[in-house]
């Protein structure tokens, strides 16, 4: 941990900040995007299923 003299030095990444931080940011952003989209996909499918159920509650027909 004592390799970094200051927070600013850590941010500078030994002069490679312009390459390191966009990489990290892109990876984190993609993780979050996948999370949001997967959750939304599930929520929408659940909504559709519940709507079908409300239209036809006996479990025999196609809504």
């Amino acid at each position: 941990m004592n390799q970094w003299a200051s927070f600013g030095e850590w941010l500078a990444m030994g002069g490679y900040a312009a390459y390191v931080w966009p990489s990290i940011g892109l990876a984190i952003g993609t993780l979050l995007l996948n999370m949001v989209m997967a959750r939304r996909r599930h929520a929408q499918a659940l909504q559709r299923a519940l709507r079908r159920l409300a239209v036809d509650g006996n479990g025999n027909g196609e809504a």
Partner: peptide, 29 residues
């Protein structure tokens, strides 16, 4: 993370595919 996405999206796929299945209706109730 990949397994989490798989679980979440697979559940959505099942909800969309199992349209008339009785178990799903029971599950949702």
């Amino acid at each position: 993370f990949q397994l989490w996405v798989l679980c979440t999206r697979l559940r959505a796929e099942i909800l969309d595919r199992e349209r008339n299945a009785r178990w799903l209706q029971e599950q949702l109730r």
